[in-house]
Write a protein that binds this DNA or RNA. Sequence first.
DNA 1: CTCCAGAGGC
DNA 2: GCCTCCGGAG
Length: 289
Amino acid sequence: MPDLATPLIGWYRTNARDLPWRHPGFGAWGVLVSEFMLQQTQVSRVIPRLDEWLRRWPDPAALAADSPAEAVRLWANLGYPRRAIWLHRAAAQIRDRHDGVVPRDVEALLALSGIGDYTARAVAVFAYGDRHPVVDTNTRRVIARAVAGRAQPGPPGRRDLAAMDALLPPDDAEAAVLNAATMELGATVCTARAPKCDACPIAHACAWRAAGYPDTGDDRRRQARYEGSDRQARGAVLRRLRDAGADGIRTDTVLPDWPDSHQRDRALATLADDGLIDLDGAFVRLPRA
DNA sequence: CTCCAGAGGC
DNA sequence: GCCTCCGGAG
């Protein structure tokens, strides 16, 4: 296999975007919060929310000492608000298990709520400089094309970690840069829709290009329609409660004109299950604890 | 419409 | 393996 690491690392040195979490001394807590926010959410939408969070909660103990309700409020419109609850729980776990210090060990990170294969390794690598494969949707697409010669990656799986691990240089610091560089290439050059192969530092070694850009089919799942979905109903309930006071509102005044009353009730039940709201008799509110 | 620095439950 | 979970940008 041709060496992809050297040209990718060289390209990254001069083409990386200037993002807050890449600044030296940003800190493991900042990296952790940014990675939670970046799960399925674009960089441009994360940056302002991240700044607000870190000014209000500069360390895990500060977040853990505040209420889940405030975490959900400041999460605002980032989407997937369970992440705000999980991050609040993770902050309490860090306080209780790790003396308030974001752990460095991947297994310890994986044991925190809301942290999976991607986020655990992203923290260990980008905050602490250790050597692990970090695989996100960008990395999966770059490997699918450059290495496997396919237009799109298959379903995510364990093999993705092994594939990235095989590309990592032995040196910890260089491996960390390659992880970041591969993600960056996928985000800015080897994009899903219109890849800019003319600007690609590994075009000469790309298996997909060498094969003539075959359309290898697309075995990805299609995402469900949002309009009319339970997710839309849940989002509407939470928006209503974020705007309400700490005491919440009467349950029968939540989305009174929602077209499907069963769907509205289902949204309330599943939000309560997720710990995103408290159903307290005739009242509903964001969770105080 | 698709895509996005995924995770967790089953 | 399968599915759900948000919301904005392109």
